[in-house]
Design a protein around this nucleic acid. Structure first.
Lengths: 169, 169
DNA sequence: GTGTTACTGTTCGGGCCCGAACGATTGCCA
DNA sequence: TGGCAATCGTTCGGGCCCGAACAGTAACAC
């Protein structure tokens, strides 16, 4: 129940506010829906799958990457997850403290640090991922297969545009 | 630049990890793309449009709601923005301190508090929204119109499923 | 009237999140 | 070989974010 107001009411109110200015409503609805959907999906997956194991969304994403690729340098982890290196430092600290991952300093370049799952972390992911994927599937069940493909392509396009226009890149 | 690895490599690594178990790859890609796209869009809009005005994403969403509907009770604001009441308390405090919004206690029910924009807040939104909408439009430019509609519908569907399955609702 | 129950917004503790500044390390090149 | 720019991960300060616990208020049964 995100809104008390219908789309039509929102559009009318918006148009009233901006006066004669043109408003791109499809774009506005798409971006707002995007943000709401991501939040709802994250909350749902966190509450139903992750919280029972006392795992954070971001913590899970980090572990998922390490599970797939066995070992990754921290800067690549941060970029893949979509968080800053500063944030990853904190998340890493939490996961290391729980004994789920290990930090492995590079022997050849002393600036670099790699991360990898501990045995305990491996076990947790092997148990958790199938459950997580089932919950993901539930979220998109009901959407026609072709639309899921279109959805994913559109989302990737947005990522591309947002990141190439970003001055920090 | 999100990934060092291609989709195909990721699927192969995932399949190797889960063994003979079935994995819903389209669902996994959709959910991950959803989260990345939302983050990228939020970061982009924050950095290009909001930051110059020293506004937070969440703070902007709150002000946008109040701009449209003139006045809203806090619980409805929190629900519409998709944050908890606890979070809204902090965001409200920040915006009030900057003189952008006002708190208006209800006369009939002393538990309720409404929010509304100050004159300063009205001016800021009138200036900011057209700029914000332009940036939104840029993000979805390049996606065919029909696909934008499909995108928005799919996203709303995900919101519905996620929130109805949520025990907190 | 008076429990009792439900609902409001707030506070608290802890984790995530970022940009900016920083010390350490490396590579390049003059 | 020595200086210098680039890159690494960390730290710092401040804001967002949530669930749980809470005090205040309202509604309702009895």
């Amino acid at each position: 129940m995100p809104d008390q107001h219908s789309l039509e009411e929102t559009e009318r109110a918006t148009q009233e506010r901006v006066g004669r200015l043109a408003v791109d409503f499809p774009a506005a609805h798409a971006i707002m829906s995007l943000y709401r959907a991501a939040n709802a999906a994250r909350s749902h997956l966190t509450n139903t799958v992750l919280r029972p194991h006392d795992l954070t969304w971001t913590g899970f994403l980090v572990m998922w990457l390490l599970w797939l690729w066995r070992s990754m340098e921290t800067r690549h982890v941060a970029e893949s997850v979509g968080i800053s290196k500063a944030t990853l430092t904190g998340v890493t600290k939490t996961l290391v403290a729980r004994g789920l991952i290990d930090r492995v300093p590079s022997a050849v370049d002393r600036r670099l640090v790699s991360l990898q799952l501990s045995d305990k972390g491996e076990e947790l992911m092997a148990e958790l991922y199938p459950e997580f994927n089932r919950a993901e599937a539930e979220l998109v069940a009901g959407i026609p297969g072709a639309d899921i493909t279109t959805l994913t392509e559109s989302l990737r396009h947005i990522v591309t545009v947002a990141e190439e226009h970003d001055p920090t890149t």
